[in-house]
Design a protein around this nucleic acid. Structure first.
Lengths: 203, 203
DNA sequence: CTTTTGTTAGTTAACGTTCACTATCAATTA
DNA sequence: TAATTGATAGTGAACGTTAACTAACAAAAG
C-alpha cells in the first residue's frame, strides 16, 4: 500500500466520501466504509481529518470550487444575455461531469449536522444568488427597464435549474443534462420576451 | 400509560417520526428516540410496524394525503387561471401549517433507503406534475394557444415553489410563506402576460 | 379466556474515536 | 557517505455507545 502525503490522501478521502454519499445516501457514510474504500485503516483517516465533521467540511470546500470556476467563466463574458445563458449552462455541464455532487447538493442531512456546515452552505447559495442577480440586473438599465421583478426572476431561474437536476436524478440520469439544460435556457429567453424593449430585437 | 389501539398508535408514531426528522434530520431518526418520544418501549414500536422502513412508508402515505386534498380543492374551481393560483397557494398554506413536512420533502436520504420508498415518492411527484399540466393546458385552447411550452412552464412553476420553500427553511421560517407565495403567484401571472391573447385582458 | 398492547431484558452489528505501536522517509549529525 | 533523529502516515485492537431488532412474559380489554 502506497503511502500518500496528507494533501493527496485528504483529496482521495473526500472523493470517496462523496462517492459513498452518492451511492447510498449521507446516512450510509461511515468512517468504516470510508476506510475500506480508501484501503487504509479507520485510524489512518484520523491522521488526515480531525473528525467526521471535518471531512464533510472538506466536501463543501471542494464544492465551493464550483463557484470560483463559475465566476471566472462568467467574468470573461460581457453580454448580459450571454452571461445568463452561460450561468445556466455551467450548472448543467458541471453537474453532468460531477454527477456525485448532485447527491451532496440535495442531501440536506449533511448540513443539519452542525452549525458550521449550515453556514457554509448558506454562503454558497447566497453567493450564487448574488451572481445571478447582478447578471440579470445588467439587462435592466435605467433607460430601458425590464417589466419583471429581477429578484423574483432570479428565484425562478435557480428553482428551475434545481428542479431539472432533481428530475435528472430521479430518472437515474437517463437523459443528457446539457441538452435538457439548453432547452431550459431557450425557455428562459422566451419568458424575457416582450418584457424589455431593449431585449426584444435580440430574442 | 394509556393503551392505544394500533391505528391510533401508528398515527402517533408517524407524527413523532416526522417531528424527529424535522428537528435533527433523517439520520437522527432511531427507534430508540422514537420510543422515548412516544413514551413506550422500543419493542412496542414493533407491535405496530414491521420494521423501520414500514414507518417511513407510513410517513409517505400520510404525505400523499396532501395530493388528495389538493386535487379535491382544485376540482371545485372552474377557471384555469384561478386553478393555477390555488395550486400554488395550496402548497404554501399547507406547508406553513405542516412545517415538519418540508423536512420530509427535502430529505432525499429517506427515499434512498429502499426501492419501495423511491417509487412511492416518484409517483407523488409525477401526480403533482400531471395535475399542474392539466391546469395550464386548459389555458391553452386550440383557437388561442399560449406562446410558451406548457411542459416547461410546469417545471418552472414547480421549481419556483420548491425553491421558495427551501429558502423559507434556510431562513428558519422567518417570513410568512403564504405572503411570500402570493408574491410568487403574481409573478407567475406576469410571466404569462403577452403570451396569450385570451389571457391578456385578464392579467 | 383469548387477543391485543404493552413491558423488560436481551441479541448482534455497527458507530465514531482513541490507544499504543510501527514502517517510511527526509534532514541533521558524526 | 553512513548513522541518528524526528516527523509523518500507517497499523490492529479496543473503547463506550448506539443501532435495529427479538424472545419471553404481564396486564389490560373485549
Amino acid at each position: 500500500m502506497a503511502r500518500l502525503n496528507t494533501e493527496a490522501r485528504q483529496k482521495h478521502i473526500i472523493e470517496q466520501a462523496i462517492k459513498i454519499i452518492h451511492e447510498n445516501g449521507y446516512s450510509s457514510l461511515s468512517i468504516r466504509k470510508l476506510a475500506r474504500k480508501e484501503k487504509i485503516s479507520e485510524a489512518a483517516i484520523y491522521r488526515h481529518f480531525l473528525n467526521k465533521e471535518d471531512i464533510l467540511l472538506g466536501i463543501l470546500t471542494l464544492f465551493s470550487g464550483f463557484d470560483k470556476q463559475l465566476n471566472q467563466e462568467i467574468a470573461m463574458i460581457h453580454d448580459p444575455l450571454e452571461k445568463l445563458s452561460h450561468f445556466m449552462l455551467f450548472h448543467f455541464t458541471y453537474l453532468e461531469k460531477h454527477v456525485e455532487m448532485t447527491s451532496v447538493i440535495f442531501s440536506e442531512d449533511i448540513f443539519k449536522q452542525s452549525e458550521i456546515l449550515k453556514k457554509k452552505m448558506q454562503t454558497i447559495i447566497q453567493n450564487r444568488k448574488k451572481a445571478l442577480f447582478d447578471i440579470v440586473n445588467a439587462m435592466n438599465p435605467e433607460n430601458c427597464k425590464l417589466e419583471i421583478d429581477v429578484e423574483e426572476f432570479v428565484v425562478i431561474v435557480l428553482g428551475y435549474i434545481r428542479l431539472i437536476v432533481l428530475e435528472w436524478r430521479l430518472s437515474n440520469y437517463a437523459f443528457s443534462l446539457k441538452a435538457r439544460g439548453n432547452k431550459a435556457i431557450k425557455f428562459v429567453k422566451t419568458i424575457l420576451q416582450n418584457k424589455s424593449k431593449c431585449l426584444n430585437e435580440r430574442l
